[in-house]
Simulated scan of single mutants.
Amino acid sequence: MGIVLENLYYGNLRPNECLRPANSEYLNLNRKISSLMDAYHKKLSREEFDDLENLIDLLGQSTSMSSAAAYTEGFRLGAMMMIDVFGGNGFKRGEQ
């Protein structure tokens, strides 16, 4: 356990950088997005494409904030479950 806490302290744990959705459509979806971005790059003026990129950046920031909140809430729920399992609600080892 100490290794995990030490890595967390030094900033070596970054779960968001290791995320790879297990959904098989993830890679296909990203390919479609790239293809559409290439098409819009050819179709739109430089200014219009810049506006589109700015919109996509804002959506990314919003999604990132939402993901961070979901991660935090999930972690809290997990911690509350551990508290429940290891000592909450008057449960003692050996009792069933």
Rank of each mutant, 00 (worst) to 15 (best):
Y40C: 11
L13A: 02
K92G: 14
L19H: 15
L13S: 01
M81V: 03
Q61P: 04
G60C: 00
A22H: 05
R14L: 06
I33D: 00
L58A: 03
Q61D: 11
E25L: 12
L8Q: 09
K43E: 10
L52E: 02
D84E: 11
D51R: 08
Q61E: 13
G90A: 01
S64I: 08
V85W: 14
H41R: 12
A68S: 10
E25N: 12
K32C: 08
N30P: 03
N16E: 15
M1G: 11
I3K: 08
Q61R: 11
I3T: 11
P15K: 00
L13G: 02
L52C: 01
R46H: 14
T72Y: 04
E53W: 05
E6A: 03
A69T: 13
F91Q: 15
L27D: 15
F86K: 14
L19K: 15
Y71K: 10
Y40D: 11
N16Y: 14
F86H: 15
L58M: 02
V4N: 11
S64Q: 12
E95G: 01
S45I: 03
E48G: 08
R20P: 09
P21T: 00
A39G: 01
D50A: 12
D38F: 03
L77C: 13
F49Y: 05
A70I: 13
L13P: 01
G11S: 00
R14Q: 10
Y9P: 03
L5T: 03
N16D: 15
G11T: 00
G60T: 00
C18Q: 15
